[in-house]
Design a protein around this nucleic acid. Structure first.
Lengths: 218, 218, 218, 218
DNA sequence: GATGAATGAGTGTTCATTCAT
DNA sequence: TATGAATGAACACTCATTCAT
């Protein structure tokens, strides 16, 4: 899916990049605090460090800011995840590592993810599919990791359950951000990661040594 | 946590109940379509079947409508779930039944849940805790079901993992609604329920016959 | 051509009529002074005697005000002219009377006509044809008066010249308003009327006694 | 009346001339399409072929552009008319020729005239008199042609009617442009010219052969 | 209790103009 | 002399809320 272009009146590409960086950074911080709708374009401009007129040299509508924010966040998460996955071979260990890495990224980008998560629905019918597609790509990455893992470990899981597991991993990563109000009270990141991996994978390791020894029947 | 009172100028309690029913019904339908911020109070009044003046006889601010909506939805979900749980004894089967029932309720109330999910963050700092608390109560209900189940089946799971699993169940129920754009393309409700139960519980049933036979180590 | 409806949020037709009267009166005065584009909606509201919010209860866009103004002016001019024409039989005298009457109306409504004349072009592609059509109707009224006159007096003029003469009369009426900066310096209304009638009709009265005796070939 | 000077930062007179030519050409085309107020300075600069910064090296305000445009148009019309009149002796034939020539010029410069006609009112109180004065000069030229004609043909017309006739000629020329939406549907330029000349002059030719034989009493 | 006209602070967006490079 | 990024005052329009009837 081709990247949706956001129009800028300014020509200098380097400058556009720089200004949009400022803009996105400011916007994320404001959106986190008060949400997209309660944030004014003037506030975004001010937070970014320039005037309202300048803001509109780099976007066409307020919604463009939201799109830019979502686009940026997905790119960053996606890139970091891709890098990690490229390095691994694809056995059970690397699945765990991928999940762990992803959860850490989500922890790292909590604010951004929370914003995107809550505000993405405000994107226009035009921009939304592009953003949703990025989600699917990330889910697909997890699917592939799971498949590689299954093969390496000689396991089998119905295709639908692989998809479901991938979705679950993806959502649980976000969950650490958007349910922080409760989760962070009861879990440290390490515990959350360990716990979720345990819950996700204990079925896969049935009959083997359960690493964290957390479940024992009888 | 005591119920937050929404002020009404009108005295007749029966009337208040009736008017708020109309209001909530209309609001849910509008919020679903365009979100809380893009819906005007006039539209809510019109959809509810009375004038803007009358609307303000039963609420003080627009946000009150959102609160009323969220409150109502949680109450409905909570009540239905409680009823179901009261009927069961608490073994593995009833855990599965509870999850299944909860997922079906979420499917049934998809629109409402989606709305609440996306708009709850717009609640004031005053109203939000009350609503979040309702979430916690529901999560706690699942925790209890899981604990009952563990005991009945003679299993053990660390307290943290029980909490985590309860959260996962809760979020996966919502997920069926808020990720419908992709999930409904690949899963029928029955498959989704079966698949999630499988993934959630396969670790608990290690060594037993796996019902859906979906996992087999070499 | 059916009347273009301007949307009002307010229901009470009497009130709409009253408020729009205020609005049009204020707008004409402002448009005359600074033109449509340099007049702000707030100024219109203020001049009309109510708030900006109230203004927008009776129109949808600023352009609606212009349309309302143009519509009203044409209606008034048209009605007054029609009344006059209905009373006359249609000989040369009544043609003169009609021209004279029309010029007086234009003098009376100078401000309005000037405004309409200069700002009508700012109407949307949607509203313009409706207004232009009203012009044509008025021109057609003059055509008919001329034709009646020709017949009554036993004269003949090619159809095209009748049309042209009607256009000329129409424009010369407006001209008294939009070229007032020069005409009013050199002519009193009476002189302007007498002079134009003389110039318009001297050809028709060739060979008869020329009433104002203004032309005499050696 | 001395020419109003428009300030330029640039010194090179040749360059100023060249840039303003570009500017005026672009502006006329834009004003014609969307009017003065709806045209932005950026658009003018772009259409002229240089940057917004450069535009402001040759003018001080947007209104200067309008003034420059109006000035240029009047100069062109005036010059062409003067040339024509200088060649004629001043009898009835040359009056007709002058009118005919003027109407053709107005047809030729329709766009420019329309623009000027509709937008001149947007000139500042400062610039307007200068432009209006140019109109008066042109009207005066017609007055003189008429007077010459009267004398040459041994006719008499009161001074006021000469002035009026001159105004009428002037306005009828513009009318061909600003009422084109209706006139061009019913008249070819030739017919319009012939018709108007007929109507304008038939009174003057009473008792002679009426060229187009269009009027006959009894 | 019900109505809906009135209000005006607030919002997204534009655009003439400036000035450092 | 030419450029175009930056500015911010100004604008059209919206909408939650009030209150007289």
């Amino acid at each position: 899916m081709k990247k949706r272009q956001v129009h800028a009146s300014v020509k200098d590409e380097k400058l556009i990049e720089k200004r949009r960086d400022q803009m996105i950074k400011g916007a994320v911080s404001l959106f986190k605090e008060k949400g997209f709708h309660r944030t004014t374009t003037r506030e975004i401009a001010k937070e970014a460090g320039f005037s309202i007129g300048t803001l509109y040299e780099y976007i066409r509508t307020k919604e463009d800011v939201l799109y830019l924010v979502c686009d940026r966040i997905y790119d960053q998460v996606g890139e970091r995840l891709q890098e990690e996955l490229d390095m691994k071979r694809g056995n059970l260990e690397s699945l765990k590592a991928a999940i762990s890495f992803y959860f850490r990224v989500m922890d790292d980008m909590q604010d951004e993810v929370l914003v995107m998560y809550q505000e993405a629905k405000s994107l226009s019918k035009d921009a939304l599919p592009y953003v949703l597609n990025k989600e699917l790509e990330m889910v697909a990455m997890f699917e592939q990791v799971i498949r590689n893992c299954m093969e390496a470990e000689g396991m089998k899981l119905p295709e639908q359950e692989i998809q479901l597991m991938a979705h679950n991993i993806f959502v649980q990563g976000q969950m650490w951000g958007f349910r922080r109000w409760v989760l962070h009270k009861h879990f440290k990141l390490e515990d959350y990661i360990a716990g979720q991996i345990e819950l996700l994978l204990n079925g896969l390791t049935k009959g083997e040594n359960v690493k964290h020894g957390s479940i024992s029947s009888n």
